[in-house]
Write a protein that binds this DNA or RNA. Structure first.
Lengths: 338, 338
DNA sequence: TTGTAGGCGTTATCAG
DNA sequence: CTGATAACGCCTACAA
């Protein structure tokens, strides 16, 4: 058994209440008693039991986070951003993985409630009404990161990046560089933020420049290398008029696409330019180095946790329902001017 | 306030003890009462407060893990392996990042004690006597993952891969493929497991084949792309007799090395073969695809958490102090036979 | 098989 | 400023 507040009180010859006060700095305690208590605490290496404490204060200093897959660099960076803030605030992070499965997500929402976390950060794929309902009935504040709710975007606080605008900017960049025949390798169609929204940004940019494109220019992958490869292959095979540029909706698919082109003896960027998305670290290790749109997932995590803290501490100032972290086009080699 | 065991008891017209019994299946309860209680629990969506429970049972079903950086794919995979097991056992994971700083590591060890975790998994860099001492004085079981303690390897249970043997095998593989002039790009010299041990494996293999190598063939990086690049540059510049192969101690440095060689117009693998270490996912996306030694960090995490569970539950069977996860040479393109 | 009551380690509310 | 003492929500002897 570890040492309790009572042991300290006894040894310092004061009441437990006094000990509690010096621990929490909650009320004035005479300097001499304070010193006496602190000395004993020091000596006995006393640490208050956070369970007992949580039981009564109703807060645990634990933040929960639900991500599809922690080994995915995107969520790794996100988590690191979150953690950096938590650590400095004396909070600790409970990480849960959903595998992207909705029922698992629901379950985890409950698990975190069990653990009495003070709040949770949720990074899912499709935040639909079922999920939103589940979130509402938990007792804790929650903020979405990385994607907005498909079921009405003003229901839950969310921190993400502007997917429409980001892809719009990326495609505009391609257009500015002389490209007109621009193909698109997107995410799953049921992925609200990273799928549908990015497609929307693509369409918007084309429309604005009165560019029309055959349907065979648009393919949907699942963000994996292989799917990028396959999508590129389809585009290649189904179009006699090849595109001069491809907007791939993440770096991994972009690299898969480049790989296919390499096997097809199509040179990047000489023949076809490729634009990625995310700006993962290894994008610049490749050759050709990947031109891409950078999303700082670290910053996104940071902003999300800050928002969650405001919610937790009932910060008065109005908190916008959805906040964006800026994106940025990173010019490297895989896109060229024509 | 959420619903308590007392509310349930009242509504089901039984005592709290009975409710507790059906929750925990701890003692026989007549079927009818059981049903009545369960119905109410269901209806009221009751979840026992894990703080209160932990306070008395002295266990939280929380496992702590300390890693240098969660956004590093190696620790991401490790964590995923750990989490996969925890989830199925109803445990939850608390992730802490140390940034590789020793004082932070010590602090985190304490934080996790505060949180009353049932055990912790520790992935550090240099587990020296100070750290070991700190570990011993915490109340929880602990197992090292990824590297052994530099301060005596039989002090703390550890699950890792055999760094000496792995590099020994990799270098032997190079030798079998006709290479004799083999350079080495290693980790930091103060890194016990991933630095010193891998170097040892390299030396062992060379010695066994009576191969001597100039000191200028050996460089120490820090596992980053840039350091791989720099080390390769030094080797290139300081040796008129270039090596025909280089053993890089992780994939990222291997890729950095390849990048340098590309700028120096040295072809891989035609002129120089490169061997990596880790087998990160993106190693096979590169060209040339990386030949490397695969360590399954997922499996390593899994084995570590299983070991920790044995410790936690005082499993009788003897648990070996240090366990290895197998490694495997993955033949791809970056190494060729000469 | 069921219920009563004490206690886990803190904090918070009162008096003093 | 300090000290009893009642919660917090649950588990577990002990009794019935």
């Amino acid at each position: 058994m570890s040492v309790t507040i009572e042991d300290i009180a006894k040894e310092a010859q004061v009441s437990v209440a006094t000990v509690s006060r010096v621990i929490n700095n909650s009320k004035a305690v005479s300097p001499e008693l304070k010193k006496r208590v602190n000395d004993v605490i020091q000596k006995r290496n006393f640490k208050p039991n956070s369970l007992a404490r949580g039981l009564i204060t109703n807060q645990t200093n634990i933040i929960g986070i639900i991500v599809p897959d922690i080994s995915n660099p995107v969520f790794g960076a996100l988590t690191r951003g979150i953690n950096s803030f938590c650590q400095q605030k004396g909070y600790t992070l409970m990480v849960c993985e959903s595998g992207g499965q909705q029922e698992k997500e629901v379950e985890l929402l409950g698990v975190l409630a069990d653990k009495k976390v003070d709040g949770v950060l949720f990074a899912g794929v499709d935040v639909n009404s079922a999920l939103v309902g589940e979130m509402k009935r938990q007792g804790y504040p929650i903020v979405l990161v990385t994607q907005e709710a498909s079921e009405g975007e003003d229901i839950i606080h969310t921190v993400t990046h502007d997917n429409v605008k980001a892809v719009y900017d990326a495609v505009s960049f391609l257009i500015e560089n002389g490209h007109q025949k621009i193909a698109f390798i997107g995410g799953p169609e049921n992925d609200y933020s990273s799928g549908q929204k990015r497609l929307k940004g693509y369409r918007l940019a084309l429309k604005e420049h009165n560019i029309e494109v055959p349907v065979s220019y648009i393919e949907h992958g699942n963000f994996s290398f292989d799917s990028g490869y396959d999508c590129m292959r389809k585009i290649y095979e189904e179009n006699s008029a090849l595109p001069t540029a491809v907007m791939a909706c993440n770096d991994v698919m972009a690299i898969g696409a480049i790989r296919f082109l390499k096997t097809a003896k199509v040179s990047v960027p000489a023949d076809i330019s490729i634009m990625g998305f995310d700006d993962l670290e290894f994008g610049k290790y490749f050759s050709p180095e990947l031109t891409t749109v950078r999303i700082s997932y670290f910053d996104e995590g940071l902003k999300a946790i800050k928002t969650l803290f405001k919610l937790i501490h009932h910060n008065q100032q109005a908190i916008p329902k959805t906040q964006f972290v800026p994106h940025k086009i990173i010019r490297r080699i895989s896109v060229r001017k024509i």
